[in-house]
Design a protein around this nucleic acid. Structure first.
Lengths: 392, 392
DNA sequence: ATGAAAGCGCTAACAA
DNA sequence: TTGTTAGCGCTTTCAT
């Protein structure tokens, strides 16, 4: 039976495919009659991967496919056979096909992480947190960059669903237009992070933006600045609004507690509050507008790191510099200590945001039926030179 | 037959599963005898996704599953039926199960991108390039952060293989220890980027490190610095070695062309060349050592951006500043213009690296049988204030 | 143009 | 403990 011997040794798909009709027919009892139609997938495409299957290993080790499966999944197999299977597997370079496994078990060991801007250090730090947490349960993380684009985000959400991922962590591209309903109706575990998508019932992990902004603004007053301005993000973005709210709260509190500081309240005026786009260029433009006011401010609270960078540029161009002009950034910048003068910042718990989100997600994946949760993490004020005070 | 009517309307897996034995038995001819063993996957796990299948849609639209498949894959179907299928699909919220499709067709529409450090702007820019190129062929990109860790990298490579991804782009965690042979033997399309893994036969896209470093070093001489030092990466890393080689070439050339500059050759001395780890902290330490030399240098060529940042810190601590002390960074820093004095850099073609790699990969995936290719992309010198010259 | 049926590689229920 | 078998959801051939 030379054909059969040849087949026993075959590893590559090319050869197996040609022989399948024979081998399967010979192996499976009760199906001697050839198949009515040949429905095998087409011939091996160029550039496609070729894999050894559980059947190849079984044959090589002289056991059944089920036994091979058990060896790889912690089933009960005698040591001797298990060993034989493992050797055969190594020899043939076998790795279980996760696609088949997922299809069969209806679950995957991959979670998706959707972030709006892969070049923003805030999100990359978050990604590390997610990864570290996921590692503990042997889940792998795949990162998808949605680029603040709701359409791109939708595509990735569809992929997550279609790929049957174990769950998804999403930093929404838009609070109102990000739509998680498809995932929810399919009962895919989801955790929203940094931004709470409107109208969705998922666990959420947030930054305490309002409190952080309040603390930051208060710090500017304490250091002696009196004519504050605020550079916030796009109107409608929750982070923008919350940070602005914190700014306002601090101003109001300061005015109430210091009735003699009559001009402090001007920080609430419309012209002192600029909505920009969370990007360097936007911060730059908005800062220029602030400086062009008849009564320009003496300090600025920038609601994110990139806009703070833009603001610094505008200041430098205008011949102004911190700390004479106070600058405080909401969100760390990696080389903050290098910028001269060094930049005071509100440090966001980006890593912990990711870590917490992944932990929640894993609870959901493993079937925790607890009620929906919202976790809010605190920020940390790092006062550096740029807010040393107008006289410093 | 009320049970059957009920079943026709059923959408959710929970209900279908319970009825499967009946429905399948009734639907499939010649299998009236009940199955010998019930081997259906276990009941719906908590926290797992629930999906509508092609069968649900088929039933709802009154067609066969094959027709539904054809509607979603551009097969020939009459307009009227196609329309019916599409409505039913939308109504049921159907999305094709990619896992099943992959299993059947033996190919996926996802490519993996493995990068060693997601927090390094160089790699994130590269990722964008990959994404933009992939978009053109409707491939999705999933990012895996290997964290410069060969073990982690191996895990992700196994996943790529096991998940039957269409291909992989890998910026190797180690030149010598990264092992692509498993992918190669399975004929999975692979493109290496930024670093050429030893002993693997794959397409490679590289930066012209030697040339860029040579140009940068030459620039330092031209600006009047004479006592150069080099801060390079880990020994054995190809990028480190190539950049160092470029540095050496430039020094030798300069010495040859300027025989009177007797001290320039000292730039080749062992104590002027420091191997660090491509990280901020390593650059910082190495720079301190350089400054502690009996005859310290007057300019430094840092072989990557993070080490340049560390070097700047060390300089500041020592009361030194550019351009009196020349600093040139191989690799852009996002806020380079903000750092005072602004930092001269060699801009790496990171985006194009990714774009090119993805383009090559797609050719391989679609079956291009062309010979192996190595593409080398050029750098660009951006002279700014930090290399204005020792007297500037 | 349409449907029936087989099978991608795996896991799990059951029988032995 | 081991093997047999069905089937996860899809695509694709063949027959109609």
């Amino acid at each position: 039976m030379p054909g059969r011997v040849d087949h026993l040794k075959s590893i590559s798909r090319e050869r197996r495919v040609r022989l399948t009709g024979v081998s399967r027919g010979a192996t499976r009892s009760g199906k001697e009659a050839g198949p009515r139609a040949d429905t095998r997938p087409g011939a091996q495409r160029a550039g496609a991967a070729v894999a050894t299957t559980i059947h190849d290993v079984a044959r090589a080790a002289g056991v059944s496919p089920a036994t091979v499966s058990r060896v790889f999944n912690g089933g009960r197999v005698t040591a001797e056979r298990a060993e034989r299977v493992r050797t055969a597997a190594t020899e043939l370079g076998f790795a279980p096909n996760r696609v088949a496994r997922s299809l069969r078990t209806q679950r995957a060991s991959v979670i998706g992480l959707l972030i709006p801007d892969i070049e923003n250090p805030f999100f990359t730090a978050m990604a590390r947190g997610v990864e570290d947490a996921a590692q503990q349960t042997n889940l792998s993380v795949v990162l998808c960059n949605t680029d603040e684009d709701v359409a791109k985000e939708r595509r990735y959400l569809e992929i997550a669903l279609a790929e049957q991922m174990a769950g998804v962590i999403v930093a929404a591209a838009s609070r109102s237009r990000t739509d998680l309903s498809a995932l929810e109706s399919r009962k895919m575990p989801v955790v929203a992070v940094d931004r709470r998508p409107r109208g969705s019932t998922v666990d959420v992990v947030l930054v305490d933006n309002a409190h952080g902004a309040e603390e930051a603004t208060w710090h500017l007053f304490e250091r002696g600045y009196r004519r504050l301005a605020c550079l916030t993000g796009p109107e409608g973005a929750s982070t923008s609004e919350e940070r602005l709210a914190g700014y306002r709260t601090a101003v109001r509190d300061f005015v109430r507690e210091n009735p003699t500081e009559t001009r402090a309240a001007e920080a609430l005026r419309e012209e002192r509050i600029r909505y920009a786009d969370f990007r360097v260029e936007g911060g730059h433009r908005a800062m220029r507008e602030l400086l062009a006011l008849p009564e320009p401010p003496d300090a600025v609270f920038a609601a994110n790191n990139l806009m703070a960078v833009g603001a610094l540029q505008a200041l430098a161009e205008a011949g102004l510099a911190a700390p004479g002009f106070g600058v405080l950034s909401f969100g760390e910048i990696p080389w903050a200590p290098l910028v001269r003068p060094s930049l005071s910042t509100v440090r966001l718990p980006s890593y912990d945001l990711g870590f917490t989100a992944a932990t929640l997600l894993q609870e959901r994946i493993s079937g925790g039926e607890r009620p929906l949760q919202t976790v809010v993490l605190r920020t940390e004020l790092h006062a550096r030179e740029s807010t040393a005070g107008p006289g410093a």
